[in-house]
Deep mutational scan, measured.
Amino acid sequence: MALNTPQITPTKKITVRAIGEELPRGDYQRCPQCDMLFSLPEINSHQSAYCPRCQAKIRDGRDWSLTRLAAMAFTMLLLMPFAWGEPLLHIWLLGIRIDANVMQGIWQMTKQGDAITGSMVFFCVIGAPLILVTSIAYLWFGNRLGMNLRPVLLMLERLKEWVMLDIYLVGIGVASIKVQDYAHIQAGVGLFSFVALVILTTVTLSHLNVEELWERFYPQRPATRRDEKLRVCLGCHFTGYPDQRGRCPRCHIPLRLRRRHSLQKCWAALLASIVLLLPANLLPISIIYLNGGRQEDTILSGIMSLASSNIAVAGIVFIASILVPFTKVIVMFTLLLSIHFKCQQGLRTRILLLRMVTWIGRWSMLDLFVISLTMSLINRDQILAFTMGPAAFYFGAAVILTILAVEWLDSRLLWDAHESGNARFDD
């Protein structure tokens, strides 16, 4: 018995066209964080690309023209004298008006014999932002004059995390709450300039795509075929072959399989920071003279006294001054041990922890910024005066060393310790 099946006739004509040209192939790229070699397709503007294995951002879609970056830099340069030299806060102490600005706080630190601690604050609040705007201006002028731009481009990517104007702005709020127990506070004209400078700096850093600047100024022929001998440069993120001198053909720094002496430098910085954190938390970090009496505060006791007036601000200072430094030390110690013992479990967790400490590390400088600003506000000789204690130097040095330890660690070593050939990683 035959089955009668109805015929289905399409209502619209289906047209099949042959592909007349070869589909576009992607360029081969190595991930600078996990060293995976993959094919990167062509990316349009405002599109980002991520590593298929570790999800690290390979290409950032946010990109401004150099002219727009230069305009932002010149605007920031105009704001800087007002943000640093004009009063941020006014207080009335014992019937006398006192003005506080950024430069005055750094000068008070240096004047009291601790120039190293003052230079830490100076670099993060004044030096690094000033280098940022002058570097962008150098790129703008240098591109037109045919100057060598490689050193500036190499420095810009590392400079971003040292620009800490946003953290200093939080420190202004913390210092205001600490001082309000002794005097009446009012915002100064410099505060508005400083807030504007923070906003412009944040926007500029978020749109400063150094890798795209490398592509514009020093374009290189990408690798179009897969080759395990391809290496990625950690300076400019170019994937290719080393030249005859073993250097990256684009930025001219040595092109090595792994960062040289990464573990040794990381261990040295980490152990030194552990040693410095002990006096930083045991010795007094601030000293207040009130009517001839002397009151010393460690980091913890200062947080407890701050909690009596504002528990939320005390929580912020606790996280930045105690929780973050010790968390960074514990995480980095764990990561280094996992590399030495070739741990194969929990790779995803370790990668996330490394990215976390990379982002939060700079916030530990908050305590030094609060001390710097408070020193310029309260300084009335023996009637009422505020000065920093010996722990300030140890704390600042420990924070900087932990930042350097994270920067010096080559994250690809975590993958080397893991089993080879993993296309995915999980716990």
Rank of each mutant, 00 (worst) to 15 (best):
P242W: 05
W107Y: 10
V152H: 01
G118P: 04
S176N: 05
V275T: 07
P219G: 13
G85I: 03
L257F: 15
G235Q: 01
V198F: 15
I58C: 08
A83E: 04
M103L: 06
L93W: 02
K12P: 11
I131L: 04
P129H: 04
E419W: 15
S39P: 06
E215Q: 09
Y394C: 03
I98C: 04
D227C: 09
R25T: 12
L384C: 03
L409G: 03
C34T: 00
G61E: 10
L377Q: 01
Q47E: 08
M155V: 03
N209L: 05
A223W: 07
L354F: 08
L130P: 07
R97I: 01
M365G: 10
N44V: 13
F395L: 14
L271G: 07
E228M: 09
Y241G: 09
W162F: 08
E212I: 15
M72D: 05
S119N: 02
A56L: 14
G361V: 13
M332C: 08
D60W: 08
L89G: 03
V210R: 15
F386A: 02
L255K: 08
H46K: 11
D35M: 04
Q264S: 02
P325M: 02
E22F: 11
D416C: 07
A272S: 08
S411T: 10
M109P: 01
S305G: 09
F425E: 13
A83L: 05
G118C: 07
G292Y: 05
N209R: 14
R53P: 00
F141C: 06
A223P: 08
G190T: 04
L208A: 15
I303D: 10
L159A: 03
Q344I: 12
V203M: 06
R150V: 03
N281M: 05
Y182V: 11
L89N: 07
D227W: 10
S309A: 04
Q108M: 15
L200F: 15
G235S: 02
G20E: 10
I322N: 13
I253L: 06
K328M: 00
L401I: 13
G173Q: 03
Q220W: 06
A268K: 00
T15V: 11
I339S: 08
L323A: 04
E161Q: 15
I131C: 04
L89T: 05
A2K: 09
P10F: 09
C251G: 00
P249H: 07
T387M: 08
R250E: 02
Q180K: 07
E215R: 14
N148M: 03
S309T: 08
T134I: 12
Q186H: 08
D427K: 15
I167W: 05
N143G: 14
G361F: 06
M356L: 15
L94N: 01
Q344V: 09
Q244I: 05
L40F: 08
G302I: 09
D35F: 06
M103C: 08
R216S: 07
S376T: 11
N281C: 15
T110C: 11
L230I: 09
A417V: 12
Q47Y: 15
G85E: 11
E212K: 15
R59Q: 07
I96E: 01
N4W: 11
R158P: 09
S372D: 15
A115Y: 04
C266L: 05
T224M: 10
P151N: 02
I316P: 14
R53D: 07
W140C: 15
A272M: 01
S309G: 08
Q180W: 11
A137L: 08
V163H: 13
A417Q: 09
L69S: 14
E86L: 02
G20I: 08
R225Q: 13
S135E: 01
D63C: 15
V195M: 09
M332F: 09
P242C: 07
A398E: 06
R68Q: 06
A423C: 15
V313K: 04
I58F: 06
R216Q: 08
M356C: 12
W107C: 11
T374M: 07
A391V: 02
N310Q: 12
A175G: 05
K57C: 12
P279E: 11
L37V: 12
T298K: 09
G190C: 02
V198Q: 15
V195P: 06
I378F: 02
L352H: 12
L401D: 08
V313L: 15
I371E: 01
Y138K: 01
P10G: 05
C233E: 00
Y289K: 01
F395I: 06
G315H: 10
H184Y: 15
D114H: 11
R362D: 02
E212C: 14
Q382C: 06
G240E: 05
L153W: 02
F123P: 00
A196R: 00
N4D: 10
W408P: 08
I322M: 10
R355S: 12
G127R: 00
Q264P: 02
H418A: 04
D426C: 08
R53N: 13
A183M: 04
M388G: 07
L404D: 06
P219W: 10
D381L: 02
L271D: 05
M109D: 05
R226K: 06
A183T: 03
L197M: 08
I126C: 07
V174D: 00
W415K: 07
I253Y: 15
K229H: 05
K178Q: 05
P390C: 12
F194G: 10
T327D: 02
C236Q: 00
A272H: 01
T358N: 14
D27M: 14
G188H: 07
I339T: 11
E21M: 11
L165C: 15
